[in-house]
Structure formats: C-alpha cells, structure tokens
C-alpha cells in the first residue's frame, strides 16, 4: 500500500517536472548565427570565436564575439575588448598592412554571452594567401593587468552591388562610406543606415559625425524617384540613420550627397529586390 502511494507521488513529481522543463525555453544566443573564425588569445588562456548573421562581404558587417576560458571552456561574460580588422597584403614580396573602420563592443559586459561589434571591410580578401584579412581582438580579462591578442583569419567576399564606397575629399582625405538596409528590402518604408569614417593613417579610421546627408533614391531604368524619404542624420560614432522609400520592386540607386563646410561629395549605392 505504502509502495503504491510512493509510486503515485513519484509520478506526480515527474509529471510536474516535465511540465516545468517544457516551460523553460532554452535560448541559444548563437542561434541563427554563422561561425566565421576562431583563435586563441595567448597569454590570457582565452578562446575567441567570431560569429556573424551572414557570410562576411565588403561593407558593414554586424559581428559577435564569444569568449571562453580555454581550460574550463566556460563562457567569459566580462572582459575589456578592442577589435581591429587588419588586411595584410603581399605585393610581389612587398609587405603592406592596413586596417578598416570598426565599431568596438559598447560594454565590457557580454549581452547574453556575446559581445556585439561591427566592421566595415573595404576590400575582399581570403583567410590566407596574398591578400588576407584577420580580425585582431585584444582581450583584457577581468582581474588581469595584461591584455592578450587573438588573430582570427577570415574571408571577406565582394559585395555585389557594392555596399561600401571610398571617396576622396577636396583636401585629399579618404572617406569610407558604407550603406546598409534590412536583409530583405520591401516596397514601402525601409530603415537605412550609413557609416562614415575618415582615414587618418593606414591603421586608423575615425568616425565623422558632422556631415549633412541628403538622399535621393531613383530607378535608373525609369528615371523616377520616390517621395517622403528621410535623410540620414547622425546618431553617434559615424553612424547615420534615415528612411528610404521604395514604390516598386526592381533596381534602385540611392544617391547620397554629403556636405560639410561648403564642400559637397556625391556617391551612390545600388540594390535590387
């Protein structure tokens, strides 16, 4: 009799547990992301993984870093991180390197175990060979005085149509302008974002916050545009946000005018949907 009660009790407990476990939805922070590369920050006993929503192409790419203790394989959720995309070129034996604009993680605290950051790749390159890209990640773990560097090789494909443009200003400076839209542009109102960086030297790109941007989309096949676009305006760190309107599907060209102190620059970005 007692045994029977125990069984009933246990069954009830199991049933309750099962029900509970159904309610807790396990969210994998990396769900829907693609692993691009990984490497070790030697001296910090840290494994660094680079993740992205899409394969990496020239232009703006939103990236995620995941850090693990290389001994315990435990996720590291607090660390000071600096990133820099570096292109190493070998031109007939002549070595040359340059960087690309990037956006640092905003906090030393991970968001759901990931550190979001971004980079604007300016040219295509492979993970190894003559023109190779690497993502240089400088990690300073909490409680450590020294930082360690991980170099993550990665492949960058050419975006088509181009999502990044390099333009020269009147005073000879180089600007890197990238434009990105939602993954699936639609007929109607679309959020759009621009980034503008000025190249200071080969390894340094500074965000430029004081351009006045005007935007005029057009369909080159027809010569018509769309009404009520909202010109991108600066949010922070060289990022400009606006709204672009498409009245129909097809090939569109987004013409941009950048003006500052009486100087005007023009560029454009194409897209087809």
């Amino acid at each position: 009799m007692k045994k029977r009660y125990t069984i009933v009790f246990l069954l009830t407990v199991f049933a309750a547990c099962k029900k509970d476990s159904n309610h807790t939805i396990s969210t994998d922070p990396k769900e829907g992301l693609i692993k691009i590369s990984e490497g070790y920050a030697l001296g910090a006993a840290t494994k660094v993984e680079l993740w992205s929503q899409t394969t990496i192409t020239t232009g703006h790419n939103k990236l995620f870093l995941a850090l693990y203790d290389s001994l315990s394989n435990q996720s590291i959720t607090k660390a000071g991180i600096q990133v820099l995309p570096v292109m190493d070129m070998d031109m007939n034996g002549m070595q040359m390197s340059h960087a690309a604009p990037c956006f640092q993680p905003e906090s030393n605290q991970a968001e759901n175990t990931l550190f979001p950051c971004a980079a604007v790749f300016t040219m295509p390159g492979a993970a190894a060979g003559q023109n190779k890209w690497s993502f240089k990640v400088t990690v300073k773990k909490e409680g450590q005085n020294n930082s360690a560097i991980a170099l993550l090789p990665l492949e960058v494909k050419a975006s088509l149509p181009a999502r990044v443009k390099m333009i020269s200003t009147a005073d000879g400076a180089k600007l890197v302008v990238s434009c990105f839209l939602p993954a699936n542009p639609k007929i109607g109102i679309n959020e759009m974002e621009l980034t503008i960086h000025r190249q200071q030297d080969k390894m340094t790109f500074l965000p430029v916050d004081d351009y006045v941007v005007s935007m005029t989309p057009e369909m080159p096949a027809m010569g018509h545009g769309s009404p009520n676009n909202i010109n991108p305006v600066i949010t922070k760190n060289g990022r400009y946000k606006g709204k672009v309107n498409f009245t129909m599907t097809g090939e569109w060209r987004i013409n941009l005018g950048l003006s500052k102190a009486g100087q005007n620059l023009n560029t454009f970005f194409d897209l087809t949907f």
């Binding site: 007929i187 369909m219 080159p220 096949a221 027809m222 599907t249 097809g250």
Partner: peptide, 12 residues
C-alpha cells in the same frame, strides 16, 4: 510589371 533591358523586373 516593367521589364527594363538587362535589369531586374520592376513590380508595383
């Protein structure tokens, strides 16, 4: 739907 030569069709 419009069909420009050598470009994607345009639809509205």
């Amino acid at each position: 739907t419009m069909y420009p030569q050598g470009a994607a069709p345009m639809y509205m």
